[in-house]
Design a binder for these strands. Structure first.
Lengths: 158, 158
DNA sequence: GCGTATTTGCATGCACTTTGCACACCATCT
DNA sequence: AGATGGTGTGCAAAGTGCATGCAAATACGC
């Protein structure tokens, strides 16, 4: 685990909020000079504490109005099935996130789609017929209470 | 839904990948001049197609090694309970994402934590005792197969 | 076709970034 | 104490990127 001091934490928190902050703005926020922020930011990028910067697009504005979570149970727990399923997940780019889980479902997928027809297509035409998949249960998101995309860095402060 | 042409889509895709691209880099990627990219980017920001830019922090590097999904069922479906639960979710900043869902669980939470003890604390000390909550089921993430954070913009082309 | 509106590239002044450099601070060893 | 090396800092200057005005080019309506 990498050495990160209070200045770094402040910078990380600020950049989590606004990934395009200039070094000068950062400097004003954390109380260092711009050059120092530049250097520290480079260090954090190089050490991969900052994995990258991404524009956050408004899905609704672009017509992606439907988010759904899909719980998947595999047919059998053979390595072969797991591998095939992984390939499926990576091939379908409507699948935004995929996790393997403890508990009664094997995998949890998050998909972002334009309409119910697309969800139906994914579930009935792509997932259900796939040989590795035994069981599919999908839930549609009714409301997004919270979607912070931010780590609770406050937990790291001392 | 907002008017977005091919240039915009290319820019959005590029900025999804790297939110700190300069206008000049953007220009080279999409085939416009830098000034034009600047103007278009400003437009996309103003029209909230670009909701923001965020640094993507490496959770593991900072000690957040545990991701879990928590399914919640509310005690009763009163508006009062829903409101109380919302407040709870917003207060606890270990809860990164929260959705209300169709299907057999009412809510799905995503938490990012430092260890199992923290998960236990959230589940047993915060969620379970809360008056609005009837049932809690948590699943730990074993593997992250995919975590793209990117919209499949290709669906919008042509 | 002709006029209007929009989009484009270029040029420019301004702001931001990055680098070298000198200095301050701290720990360690003699 | 004093010397030594490492790290972190601000400042200044040179390089780089950004935003805006402007004129040319393109698209659009009638």
């Amino acid at each position: 685990m990498i050495q990160v001091d209070t200045f770094d934490l402040k910078m990380l928190a600020a950049l989590q909020d606004d990934g395009r902050l200039t070094n000068q703005q950062l400097a004003d926020l954390v109380g260092l000079s711009a050059s120092q922020c530049s250097r520290r930011r480079m260090r954090l990028e190089e050490e991969k504490v900052i994995a990258g910067y991404h524009a956050d697009l408004a899905g609704e504005a672009l017509g992606f109005e439907l988010i759904a979570f899909i719980h998947i149970t595999l047919a059998t727990h053979s390595p072969d099935n797991a591998k095939k399923f992984r390939e499926l997940v990576n091939r379908v780019d409507d699948i935004q996130e995929a996790y393997s889980l403890t508990g009664d479902a094997d995998y949890l997928l998050k998909v972002m789609l334009r309409d119910l027809k697309s969800l139906s297509a994914i579930v009935n035409d792509v997932l259900m017929p796939h040989q590795s998949v035994a069981h599919v249960r999908s839930s549609i998101v009714l409301d997004r209470l919270k979607e912070s995309m931010k780590l609770p860095l406050r937990a790291l402060e001392r």
